[in-house]
Nucleic acid binder design. Sequence first.
DNA 1: GTTAGCACTCTGGTTTAATGAGTGCTAATT
DNA 2: AATTAGCACTCATTAAACCAGAGTGCTAAC
Lengths: 340, 340
Amino acid sequence: MLTERQLFLLRALVDDYISTAEPVGSRAIAKREDVNYSPATIRNDLADLEEMGFLEKTHTSSGRIPSEKGYRFYVDHLVSPVLLTAREMQSIKKAFTDMYYEVEKVIQETAKIMSDFTNYTAIAMGPELNDTKLKHIQIIQLNAEKAIMIIVTDTGHVESRTISLPKKVSARDIEKLINILNQKLKNVPVFQLKTKIEKEIKKVLNKHIENYEQILSILDEALSYHPLDQIYYGGKNNILAQPEFRDVDKFLPLLNALEEKETIYELLRSPSSGINIKIGHENNLVAIKDCSVITASYSMGGEHMGTVAVIGPTRMAYPRVITLMEVISRKLTHLLTELY
Amino acid sequence: MLTERQLFLLRALVDDYISTAEPVGSRAIAKREDVNYSPATIRNDLADLEEMGFLEKTHTSSGRIPSEKGYRFYVDHLVSPVLLTAREMQSIKKAFTDMYYEVEKVIQETAKIMSDFTNYTAIAMGPELNDTKLKHIQIIQLNAEKAIMIIVTDTGHVESRTISLPKKVSARDIEKLINILNQKLKNVPVFQLKTKIEKEIKKVLNKHIENYEQILSILDEALSYHPLDQIYYGGKNNILAQPEFRDVDKFLPLLNALEEKETIYELLRSPSSGINIKIGHENNLVAIKDCSVITASYSMGGEHMGTVAVIGPTRMAYPRVITLMEVISRKLTHLLTELY
DNA sequence: GTTAGCACTCTGGTTTAATGAGTGCTAATT
DNA sequence: AATTAGCACTCATTAAACCAGAGTGCTAAC
């Protein structure tokens, strides 16, 4: 069990290390005005904290730095809530009101805002199409072989695909097809489209259109949604300003990982809602073993829509980022819900 | 005027420096099997070349490296064409045949290919909409205030914008509007849409639709095209592997410049067609003063469509990259022309 | 339980010296 | 007249040596 003083010292040390990025020694802590213990006393406690695994030393006679376990404890029990200044709140508010109307643009812009306010790298994912509903479907023929299929959802998301038409489809058939699809599929949740087509549309089409099978198979393929297209970054290179990433070998894997949207997608798919914090190895991704990831989910009219995240060194300004993420996910949710 | 031997030595030195990244001394050149001059002779010529501004020294007693003027001369007069291996050609061909059908995807993929084959950073821009023609325009109402406007071009490009509807527009009016627009604007080059609307459509609309002015103003804004959305990267971090960019201060401005699409757009808007090479300061952008940019334009059915580029250190493997760019822009043009 | 004192450890920066690659110049050679 | 050998000199790089400073752990005193 940790004593009051140990708790206090652990917090003080982590706070200090977060802001200086230098190992913290007993003397440095003792010098703080709110501390009345002598360096020696502090040393004893720090030694205990180290023994318990909350702290580490970079070498035998260095000051101490928090271990991952230390950060975890700090995040779970010691973060004191930080208030943003009125100025900052104002500035965030402004950023969110000046925005475009398109959902994608909003998400994209949010990533920028997050990175600007945290000075870390921000990632925004989504919107996921899960529960959005089909608003309109359209096929526009380009030439004898090719056509564009466009799908619009009720959230204003537009997906388009080029499809190659089977040989024996007439313009009339396509028109019929569109009419049927729109009639039957309007307001169907996007993720149900495929099964719905399979179950209900097939028969109807059969009656009206020749060659419907080939069209359907293409439709089917065209309906697969790529969530990887919906990943936006802000301040991608901010991480390079952090002293722990001075070395090329340190940040190159990280930068490369950021480029792999698959990896990022897996990393951020947040299991729970609300704020989520993963520290270092908790992320299960070697490239970011020295980073922490803080995610927050946002929604739209109560439906979970996507995730925003900030990625920084494990020595991250947790308190600030946490409050910031809370504010931003709230604002984002609010804005999106209001928009549609 | 340069003597034969000086020409030869300049080429040899640049070649050598390109592959080793180390200043090249007289002895190193003398050792080459195709060289029969003594180091002293070579030294004299190198001194002359330096005096003429083609070479530089990193310090008084170092070997020499090419100056920008040296690279320029090398590129203009000394590059010996390089042949790609059959294997490589095969591999490029394969990459281009495995591709998606969408133009955007093709461009995107091309950036990847270029970076993979050069190990530098690749950028692909376009397609520019200049001469593509409108195929279809559509407005889909989402709710009382919002609608999506979708524009499809004959190259299969889809642009969509969210627009907010004026209060007093009925669904019927919108339908009318779309019909008129499609009727009048089909096959009009995209860049003429605005003026065409201004000149011809206004009157027609006036007759049929109330409140047409508000709609038009929105339409007008929605029609502005953002070429910045059409910039794709490949191997963004490849540049970090180059020894000249070991230092954070060296590559950070570069990486940041890459993130600014405005900047990149200005940088790559190639004036001429064909292959274009800009060396170091010729680029007029401090962030890439130590880089060279090789651009190539591609087209579609004879119409210029966009630009692809490779950006690497001034010490770039020019011969190889040049041939590679030629091959790729040809393949790309071919593929796109065939697709539509 | 807390603190002062002290010996000990390790880092980081600075100095010194040695090595080696490369040059420019002069004089000899072809 | 052009080329080359020889040599003194320069500068960067590396390793070793050294020193100062920050910090610890431990013991003994408070």
